[in-house]
Design a protein around this nucleic acid. Structure first.
Length: 282
DNA sequence: CCCCTCTCCTGATCGC
DNA sequence: TGCGATCAGGAGAGGG
């Protein structure tokens, strides 16, 4: 399940291999993969053709390629999206196929079809150029211009569970269910606590842990559980071997030994230590 | 405005 | 063996 570190791994792979290359062929196999491109598959195909990739960008879980035309090809991996370079052997979930002028195939493979491609204009927001569909997304904790104090200030006004806020991409981006649980475990805070009830140092610590855990994951090539996430070469990450909270229901807390629990909230699983991260009274 | 729930999708897995 | 139910969850639409 691609969150910031996994998306960044993909961006780096693309930056290393396709910048400067021209797109010489495009085929959309599944219209749902380009549903967010309002002008339709034919328009996307036509505008990608003969375009040169000039650079790459990322904010949170959004990734994009800048093109010679001035457009950005915005890619969201959703739950199971992959950007693959090279021959695709399993074509079952091949949604968009392109060819570059050096003969490399660049493919978008996505089993659950939550992800997709779209073309968009770039716009400058707060001094940083991002594609229009990304303009509403907050800076992520690995952004050099991430403003910890400003995000803490926002969180201090939220009458809402802290985990919900960590998952809200307009508050802080890049964090998904896995890294939210890891950050909260490191900070010893239960995700059901109300954000505004937490102190500034605690909120700042949670954000700091989010940055740390995502940097750690990035160093190991991202997290993967079921091979749905792979980098541009089709290799899985290794960070799942060092998760402290996510998926550890019934196992001992690595800090205190208490048995880790799983709760349902927001229709999602939350893994936490009942001793280190006690649930708030209702 | 703020907050929350629902919905989209496919495949693995589970219980009967 | 088969089949329906459940689960995984990012993010936007829409409701209260």
């Amino acid at each position: 399940m691609p969150e910031l570190p996994e998306v960044e791994v993909v961006r780096r792979g693309l930056a290393a291999h396709i910048v400067g290359k021209k797109i010489t062929a495009v085929r959309v196999n599944h219209p749902r993969a380009v549903r967010r491109h309002e002008e339709g598959p034919a328009d996307l195909t036509a505008r990608l053709l003969d375009n040169v990739v000039t650079g790459t960008g990322r904010r949170g879980k959004y990734l994009w390629l800048t093109l010679g035309s001035g457009d950005a090809l915005v890619v969201h991996l959703g739950m199971s999206g992959q950007m693959l370079l090279g021959p695709v052997t399993k074509t079952e979930h091949l949604r968009v196929a392109t060819l570059l002028d050096d003969g490399t195939a660049m493919s978008f493979v996505d089993q659950r079809t939550f992800g997709g491609w779209m073309l968009a204009d770039l716009v400058t927001v707060d001094g940083t150029e991002v594609p229009v569909p990304v303009a509403h997304v907050a800076r992520d904790p690995l952004d050099p211009l991430f403003d910890d104090a400003a995000v803490v200030k926002v969180l201090r006004r939220k009458h809402s569970e802290i985990k919900r806020q960590l998952l809200d991409q307009t508050v802080v981006s890049g964090i998904g269910n896995i890294y939210a649980d890891e950050s909260l475990w490191r900070a010893k805070v239960n995700g059901a606590r109300i954000a505004e009830s937490l102190t500034k140092p605690t909120l700042s610590a949670i954000l700091g842990h989010a940055a740390d855990v995502m940097r750690d994951a990035l160093g190991q090539g991202g997290t993967s559980f079921d091979s749905l996430y792979v980098n541009v070469n089709g290799e899985s990450g290794y960070f799942d071997r060092s998760l402290d909270a996510y998926g550890r229901e019934g196992e001992p807390c690595k800090r205190c030994g208490a048995i880790m629990q799983r709760d349902k909230f927001m229709n999602r699983s939350s893994y936490y230590c009942p001793k280190c991260q006690p649930r708030p009274r209702r």
